[in-house]
C-alpha cells in the first residue's frame, strides 16, 4: 500500500483531475483532454505505468462527445489506472500518445476506423479491418447496422411442406422473428 500512497501523492500534484478509487487495484481519473499526455508521461515515468492495456472509445451521441479511456497498468505497483477524457465529436480530433506508448498506434488506428476520430501524430491511420468499407464509421451510434443489414440482405424464404399444410388448414406464420425483438424496443 506504500506504493499506492505514493501514487496518490503523485496524483495530487496534477491539476484539474478527479481521482476515484474504485477498489484496491483500480483508479479512475477524469482528466481535461489537454492535460492527458502530461499525466500519462508522469504515470509512466514516476510510477511504472509501462503497460498501455487499451484505449477505449465511447460515443456519447446525446452529449455530442467521444469519451476516450486510457487503461494503464503498472507492473511495479499492480494497479490499473483508467484515465477518462471527453473530446467533442465534431471535428473529432485528438492527439496521439504513440510517442509514449507504442501500442497506442493500433488502438488509435482502430478507433479512427470505427469512430472516425482522428489522432494527430499517430503513425498509421490507414484502414485495417474494414478495408473495403466506404460507409460511415460503423461504431458510431448513428449508424444502424441492423437497418443496413435489412437493406442489403433478404430473410431466407422457407417454404417447407409442413408450413404449406398448416396454411391449408387456415394457419400459418403469425409473428416473424424481426417483429418481436426486445432488443429493438425503443428507449432505454
Amino acid at each position: 500500500m506504500d506504493n499506492q500512497q505514493q501514487l496518490e501523492n503523485l496524483l495530487t500534484t496534477v491539476d484539474n483531475i478527479t481521482v476515484n478509487l474504485d477498489n484496491q487495484r483500480r483508479i479512475r481519473l477524469d482528466v481535461p483532454p489537454k492535460e492527458l499526455p502530461a499525466l500519462l508521461e508522469l504515470l509512466k515515468g514516476r510510477a511504472g505505468f509501462l503497460h498501455l492495456s487499451a484505449i477505449s472509445c465511447v460515443d456519447w451521441i446525446d452529449e455530442n462527445e467521444f469519451e476516450l479511456v486510457y487503461h494503464l497498468w503498472s507492473y511495479q505497483i499492480n494497479t490499473l489506472v483508467s484515465a477518462h477524457i471527453r473530446v467533442p465529436r465534431d471535428p473529432g480530433v485528438y492527439i496521439s500518445v504513440y510517442d509514449l506508448f507504442q501500442p497506442a498506434a493500433f488502438y488509435e488506428r482502430d478507433i479512427h476506423e470505427m469512430y472516425g476520430l482522428y489522432f494527430e501524430g499517430s503513425p498509421d491511420m490507414e484502414k485495417f479491418i474494414l478495408t473495403e468499407w466506404d460507409g460511415p464509421p460503423p461504431m458510431r451510434k448513428e449508424f444502424d447496422s441492423e437497418a443496413w443489414v435489412n437493406d442489403h440482405f433478404d430473410w431466407q424464404d422457407y417454404r417447407p411442406d409442413w408450413l404449406i399444410e398448416i396454411e391449408e388448414q387456415g394457419g400459418g406464420i403469425e409473428t416473424r422473428p424481426d417483429e418481436q425483438r426486445f432488443s429493438q424496443s425503443k428507449g432505454k
Binding site: 398448416i166 388448414q169 394457419g171 406464420i173 403469425e174 409473428t175 416473424r176 422473428p177 418481436q180 425483438r181
Partner: peptide
C-alpha cells in the same frame, strides 16, 4: 406465449398459428 421468440438472440424463431 412467444417468450422464446423474444429472448432469441438471433431472431431464429417464427411463431406459427396451428389451427389444430
Amino acid at each position: 406465449c412467444s417468450t422464446c421468440q423474444k429472448v432469441c438472440d438471433n431472431a431464429a424463431i417464427t411463431m406459427i398459428r396451428v389451427p389444430s
